[in-house]
């Protein structure tokens, strides 16, 4: 495990490289693309565990924080989708450099999965994409996180919260403890994974912890794209403060992701 800052000095990104454990090392790197805001904090333990499992499966693994997120440079109000797509490219270059590999796989969680899909366009070094609980529809995502935000504040602040205006997906400026600047809100609102047909990868795995109509639609959409597509529903809870505070990780789901990458490489 090697933590470091990398990338341009004004926009340095924090990352942790997990080298392969055991030999022969695979000639593939795996980049983990985290979710945003509080979801990233909730998923931290799971993504760390996933990195460890993948390194034990002899992959080179890099997990990192986008600009304005985690330990990376930038204020939380400065991050936006365009920047984060660039960050994925920067992190991929760092992974290839650390590992000495030419080809990579990306595993993205929630908005990180959606970013991975957007960032994949035009690349020639991607082997496979794993989309874990991806955000399919930006507008629905905003509604969902706004509802989570309201619920959290009601629980935490009780009566003091009741007198304030409810958070709306149209003009929310903060979500679950993090700023939601207008630019980012607009970018998220425009996201529609069902409109994307350009997947320059050999294989896409859709791994979901719950079944929703949106995931069904995405599954059908991916199936229609003549991709080598796999789908797995592994019931798991990870996206709540309660689960985070119990330090649980969705081990079955993580194992499914590792197996999916191994199959792709076979």
């Amino acid at each position: 495990m090697t933590p470091s800052f990398f990338g341009p000095s004004a926009r340095s990104l924090f990352g942790i490289y997990h080298p392969p454990v055991g030999r022969p090392a695979r000639n593939r790197g795996v980049l983990l693309c985290a979710p945003l805001g509080q979801e990233a904090i909730r998923a931290h333990r799971a993504l760390r565990q996933l990195a460890i499992l993948l390194s034990r499966a002899r992959y080179h693994v890099l997990r990192f924080d986008y600009y304005g997120c985690g330990d990376s440079a930038g204020d939380s109000s400065e991050g936006h989708t365009t920047q984060w797509l660039e960050d994925i490219a920067t992190a991929t270059a760092e992974l290839k450099d650390c590992a000495g590999v030419n080809r990579v796989c990306w595993v993205g969680l929630r908005y990180g999965a959606s970013l991975a899909v957007l960032a994949a366009r035009g690349r020639r070094d991607l082997d496979s994409l794993v989309l874990w609980d991806p955000v399919v529809d930006g507008k629905a995502y905003l509604r969902e996180v706004c509802a989570m935000h309201e619920q959290l504040l009601l629980e935490e602040l009780g009566d003091r919260r009741r007198h304030r205006r409810a958070t709306s997906p149209d003009d929310a400026e903060e979500i679950l403890g993090f700023p939601l600047p207008r630019r980012l809100r607009d970018e998220i609102r425009q996201l529609d994974l069902l409109s994307i047909v350009d997947y320059p990868v050999r294989r896409v795995a859709l791994v979901v912890s719950s079944t929703t109509p949106a995931y069904d639609r995405l599954r059908a959409h991916l199936s229609s794209l003549r991709l080598d597509m796999t789908y797995a529903h592994v019931p798991a809870e990870w996206n709540s403060d309660q689960v985070m505070n119990r330090s649980l990780v969705p081990m079955d789901l993580l194992q499914t992701i590792v197996a999916s990458l191994a199959e792709a490489a076979a």
Binding site: G37, G70, D71, D75, F178, M244
Partner: peptide, 15 residues
């Protein structure tokens, strides 16, 4: 803070 990573609640320790 508890089991939260070093960035603190909502990244507050970074700021």
């Amino acid at each position: 803070a508890g089991l939260l990573p070093r960035i603190g609640p909502y990244r507050l320790w970074v700021r």
